[in-house]
């Protein structure tokens, strides 16, 4: 799925969170969006799918393979979500429904968008669990019985179960410990490339970005300040904002 964002603006109350954002993702491309916390990157991903809070006002255009998302009605957006676009959120423990089993959570997009028999759904969930490296027995567990890495794998399985054409990963590794972080990024990249889907990967961590994406946008105070190939950005950041983010990664790396 290709994405084309033009002049996107997001305002809540008197606060302008995002303005004049242009962003493109080609079919099968993995694109990053990086910025410090509060820079509005999460809002952009939410705006693409109508997940912004009630009182957010959007302007501009978000084109998802020919479908305009800004101003679209709730039913159209809901049909896109889970069917054509899979979303992975930051904290799996808060995003997985705490009162349902992991298996029920993973099959939810299937139940909402496709008419399948119970057995077919169970089969797909089983195969998906294997793909993300989870034991089939975990399907009957509740999220609070999983480790952080396991829970995020379950969230990835939920996002990918319908083989969507676009994956939006909103800081999927931030809540994890360092070893799980690398595993999750590698898993996500492999699964996305295998399925030929596009991906928008959001993070504030340049080292994660380098592993997950080929091209990236740097966001500061709701505006895109720089964009280009991820390796170029990392090697030669041309704006001070990008430089700071790279510098922060470097400094921590040296300590």
């Amino acid at each position: 799925m290709s994405v084309s964002i033009r002049d996107l603006g997001i305002v809540i109350g008197s606060q302008t969170l995002v303005s004049d954002v242009d962003l493109d993702i080609a079919d099968g491309e993995r694109v990053g969006l990086i910025g410090s916390s509060g820079s509005g990157k999460s809002m952009i991903s939410k705006a693409m799918l109508g997940l912004t809070p009630d009182d957010a006002v959007l302007s501009g255009s978000v084109n998802l393979s020919g479908v305009e998302a800004v101003g679209a009605d709730e039913v159209t957006l809901a049909d896109l979500r889970g069917r054509y676009v899979g979303t992975i959120l930051q904290d799996p423990f808060s995003s997985l429904n705490p009162v349902t089993t992991v298996g029920r959570q993973i099959e939810l997009p299937l139940r909402l968008h496709y008419r399948l028999s119970k057995a077919e759904r169970a089969g797909r969930v089983r195969r998906m669990l294997a793909k993300v490296g989870l034991d089939a027995g975990l399907a009957d567990r509740h999220p609070n019985e999983l480790s952080g890495g396991q829970a995020q794998r379950a969230a990835i399985a939920t996002a990918l179960i319908t083989s969507p054409r676009l994956i939006v990963a909103d800081e999927p590794t931030t809540a994890l410990d360092s070893i799980a972080q690398r595993q999750i990024v590698d898993l996500l990249v492999r699964l996305v490339d295998d399925s030929g889907a596009s991906m928008l990967f959001i993070t504030h961590d340049f080292s994660v970005l380098a592993r997950a994406t080929t091209r990236a946008y740097v966001l500061e105070h709701g505006r895109v300040v720089e964009s280009g190939a991820t390796s170029d950005l990392l090697a030669k950041p041309s704006t001070p904002q990008a430089g700071r983010l790279v510098g922060a990664a470097r400094k921590l790396a040296l300590e």
Binding site: T174, S178, D205, R211, A249, L252, A253, L254
Partner: peptide, 25 residues
């Protein structure tokens, strides 16, 4: 960079706790 990430993430995870506590996203 990639090795360094292991170091970074520990610090980042700590500093981001306040965010993780609030409503996600």
């Amino acid at each position: 960079v990639h090795d360094g990430r292991l170091g970074i993430s520990d610090v980042v995870a700590g500093s981001c706790q306040a965010d993780a506590v609030g409503p996600a996203g």
